[in-house]
Amino acid sequence: MDVDTWIQFYELNGLIVIGGGTLDGQGAAFWSHDLGSQGPGLPVNLMFQKVNNALVRKLSSVNPKGFHISVVQCNNIRLYNLRITAPADSPNTDGIHISRSNLVKIARSEIATGDDCIGMIQGSTAISIKNVKCGPGHGISIGSLGKYENEADVRGVVVKNCTLSNTDNGLRIKTMRGPKATASRASSIIFQDIIMRDVKNPIIIDQEYNAHGKNQANPSPVKISDVHFINVRGTSTSPVAVQVACSRIVPCQNLQFYNINLDYVGKPRKALPPTCTSTCTFATGLSYGGIQKPPACH
């Protein structure tokens, strides 16, 4: 077991969990304590590890000490009709955290929490996220990548028909920098038919994550390619609605933007226009089609 957990299902095949009850982690008593990055991981409300062919429906999770739900080393697990809730300022309360798992389907769920609504790290493959409402939180994220030794790739992620409201990020891919960052890949990713409602960073690829101190001299070695943003519309609270900051040693390749329609609703800042803009660095093979608001960057 990688981290502490309250309830865990381990090494099972053909699991069915159907409820109507609520898992209350009573995390508020712990959130005020500063454990630091080296501190122990706080317990997850519900963990699935080495579980195959599972169905999970109609569960609620509130106020975990750590993550709400973790999916680790699983294959073919479906999570439907979930209600996940914690305050916007609750630390590290990821809604659903996926790693080293294949064929994970999440649908018809509502996630309001203090960190990523859904986070996918190393080894997440064939992931489907549909009809999810996210917010508050840090959005739907791939990464951080490049953190672990011999890190497995992320590929085949589809996020479709989702709504993000009042989140710090919308659709995000983030990778680590630094001397210990490891090379891996993130590819074949589709974000389609997404609504943003007052989202701070609607579209963001951040390969300068944790770029401070000694890490500044070490670009991310993670390769990002074949990422598609299709039919993304709504409002941004940041003037820079599309941010693409790729690695200078392995530039992003084949990024598609089709029908991007984002309006700026924040207060205009000095020296910045009252409309959204885009920024792109170290990206090759950019393609555009349909509406482009903010204007495309090349």
Rank of each mutant, 00 (worst) to 15 (best):
V44L: 07
K200V: 11
A296C: 07
S278N: 06
M1Y: 15
G213S: 12
I127M: 07
N169Q: 07
P40D: 11
C252H: 00
G137T: 00
G266C: 06
P268T: 12
G21M: 08
R185F: 02
Q216K: 08
D168T: 04
I194W: 04
G170V: 06
N13D: 13
K267S: 13
G139Y: 00
N215Q: 02
H33I: 15
G178Q: 03
H212Y: 13
G114V: 00
L12W: 10
I18W: 01
G266V: 07
C134M: 02
S101H: 04
D226G: 15
Q8R: 15
S225F: 00
K58C: 10
T93A: 08
C276S: 03
L23V: 14
A186D: 00
S236R: 14
G266R: 06
T277C: 12
T5S: 11
E208K: 15
I7K: 10
G95A: 03
L23I: 15
M120V: 11
D263R: 14
S90A: 15
A54F: 09
G66F: 06
S128G: 09
R57P: 13
T113L: 00
G119I: 13
W6F: 10
D206Y: 12
P274L: 03
N75G: 05
R155T: 15
I18C: 06
Y148L: 12
S184L: 14
H298T: 15
M47S: 13
A86C: 04
Y264M: 12
F30K: 13
G135D: 01
G289C: 08
I205E: 01
A107K: 12
V3N: 13
P202M: 10
D89Y: 06
V62P: 01
G20N: 12
A88C: 02
K160W: 06
C117H: 02
S278W: 10
S184P: 03
E151P: 10
